[in-house]
Amino acid sequence: MFELAGWKLPPELRASQPAELRGMRRDHVRLMVIDRTSGSITHTRFDQVGDFLDAGDLLVVNSSRTLPAAIPARRQDGSPVQLRPSVRRGQHWDALAVQPNPPHANVPLAAGERLAVAGTQATVEGRRADIPLLWRIRLDEDGLDRLLLAGEPIRYSYVPGPIPLEYYQTVYATHPGSAEAPSAGLAFSWEVLLGLHERGIETADIVLHTGLSSFQDDAFDAEHHMYEEWFEVSTLAAAAVGRAHRVIAVGTTVVRALETAVDRHGHVRALAGWTDLKISPAHRPRVVDALITGFHEPQASHFELLQAFVDGDLLRRAYAGAIERRYLWHEFGDTMLIL
């Protein structure tokens, strides 16, 4: 049985490239279906996901568009530093500052120092009190275009080479703003989604702009710091959730957004703002009935979130099965459906 303590993901199970660059369709990654009622685990291919859904079910996707959020900057002494803005409020960023090259260790900045960033200048105002690895940075000039011109997608060590931004976009990506891809939905093609629509399985979209999944500091990451992310649940999405038979969240970002928008009567209402809601066994979902998600290392907060859906034994059995059957992990890897 899978044991969390001391566990390390075998390196060859890390998906180092998107499916298309591994020579397959994005909707041909594998799908593990975990049925919580029966405790059964089924192995199939992602494009067969409709076999496990019924007419009247609603898929809720995150239509946030991924930004090239690794931004080259230069300090006054001429040394390069990479900024990873995790929270953006106009020209105010809360950003990680790391070395431009792997392993991208954190770079301590100084309050008051000036940086050259993406064709403009910026002032480091200080650290965030709650998450000291994030620097509060004020850009002299605002503008998404600067970021789009200068940035590259944020990439972790298991992705050795640069991957064009379009491979980080879901096929329904619309509203720009995520620091990292809302990756649970990367396996969807429109061919699959349109096929599901024909079978009465509809789609609604919410927006949640993702922050960073890692602070490039193992000890700090292990503490599972949560911070705010911008989200928007439209009137249209709220109404669709209200009508749905089952609500299937595509990605944990969707869980976070929908569960934030639940009112005291248990109904999702249209709402936009910042959420710092933490989904965990202590805060179980009220409107989300099922979840499509990827495989991420169990030390990450992802595992804790999944335990809000699946009891620990079944989840450990699922992870053991994934390793035994060589499922691929991380944002470009295989997927699971928790029913």
Binding site: R65, L67, L144, D145, L148, L149, P164, L165, E166, T174, H175, P176
Partner: peptide
């Protein structure tokens, strides 16, 4: 240029 295509789409949507 594919970066410019992303700029055109993202800036319009923003």
């Amino acid at each position: 240029n594919s970066r410019d295509i992303e700029r055109v789409v993202a800036l319009t949507l923003e």
